[in-house]
């Protein structure tokens, strides 16, 4: 992974409001990134595996995954990613509106790398995105370059 090429982030989210908000907040940040968006679980896996229309897609460095997406929900996407040797190393941040214990435990059982409840407040949301940038995109050594 080159320090100059932008970080590839896949956002799996069917709510355009959330997509735009994430995009806006990321835009205000310091890290150069490319935000790729898919609206359902089937598309997400296809994108990650560069299947069909996504044959030219780049390898993703980070996945922001909403649990409640159509066709295949986030849990299934997570399960398939973690069962797939080619995808399991990609860090998955579950970013969802649920704060139910069942969802949180379920996600970690499926080896989610972290679980974040979408804050209602913009300042809070901004802080979350900054923290993701700070931690996952600058501190953490991602596996992408090695693969």
């Amino acid at each position: 992974m080159s320090a100059h090429s932008p970080i590839q982030i896949l956002l799996v989210e069917d709510n355009p409001g959330d997509v735009r908000l994430t995009r806006e907040v990321l835009k205000e940040g310091r890290i150069s990134n490319t935000l790729n968006v898919v609206e359902d679980g089937v598309e997400a896996l296809a994108f990650l595996r560069r299947e069909g229309a996504y044959a030219d897609a780049k390898q993703q460095d980070l996945v922001l995954l909403d649990l409640n997406v159509p066709k295949k929900d986030g849990r299934e996407v997570l399960a398939e990613m973690k069962a797939d040797p080619a995808l399991r190393r990609i860090p998955v941040i579950v970013l969802t509106s649920s704060s139910a214990e069942l969802d949180i435990h379920g996600a970690y059982d499926l080896h989610a790398n972290c679980y974040i409840t979408k804050p209602v407040d913009l300042d809070q949301f901004t802080k979350v995105v900054r923290s993701i940038e700070e931690f996952w995109l600058s501190i953490v050594k991602l596996p992408g370059g090695v693969a």
């Binding site: 509106s97 407040d121 913009l122």
Partner: peptide
């Protein structure tokens, strides 16, 4: 209700 609320809150704040 949280979902639409988040939209309203976030975008009015934005």
């Amino acid at each position: 209700l949280q979902e639409p609320l988040r939209m309203v809150t976030n975008y009015t704040q934005l």
